[in-house]
């Protein structure tokens, strides 16, 4: 029986990292991105990635998110039945908004990254008061 609230496993998408000198597989994390008047929020699923293995880059209007898993978790394990590949996560985004770089906050919990990117003052919506003449 399938109900609307039943969760599906979406296959992990491999990504190419030509600029990377590190070997190994990389996958594209599933993300939610939403925007409020004050900030952009990016939520990314990166299972197996500890907080100290997350790297966030912001160059110009390009945001990159990278996470790496702990290889030692797989020592001595021989795969017998496999449904998903294991590796790092990597994804790039182009930001349409001016971001206040100093105010960026990142939190990692239970394999989920929450990245808060506050908009620069200049990019926030402003209400212009109209004076009655």
């Amino acid at each position: 029986m399938t109900t609307a609230s039943e969760l599906e496993a979406k296959p992990k998408q491999k990504v190419e990292r030509r600029e990377s000198t590190r070997p190994g597989a990389y996958f594209q994390p599933a993300v939610d991105i939403f925007e409020t008047p004050e900030e952009l929020v990016l939520v990314a699923d990166m299972p197996g990635v500890p907080a100290d293995q997350v790297h966030i880059g912001l160059e110009g209007d390009e945001l990159s998110v990278e996470g790496r898993v702990r290889p030692e978790e797989y020592e001595g394990l021989k795969p017998v039945y496999v449904e998903y590949g294991v590796g790092g996560f990597y994804r790039r985004f182009t930001l349409g908004e001016m971001i206040d770089r100093e105010g960026i906050k990142a939190q990692m919990k239970n394999g989920v990254l929450v990245l808060k990117l506050p908009k620069a003052q200049a990019a926030r919506p402003r209400r212009i008061a109209v004076e009655a003449a």
Binding site: E8, P11, L77, P79, V80, Y81, V82, E83, V86
Partner: peptide
């Protein structure tokens, strides 16, 4: 295609 959640891997130790 999408499968049953969560995806699992089974290893022999």
């Amino acid at each position: 295609s999408p499968g049953v959640y969560p995806p699992v891997n089974v290893f022999d130790q």
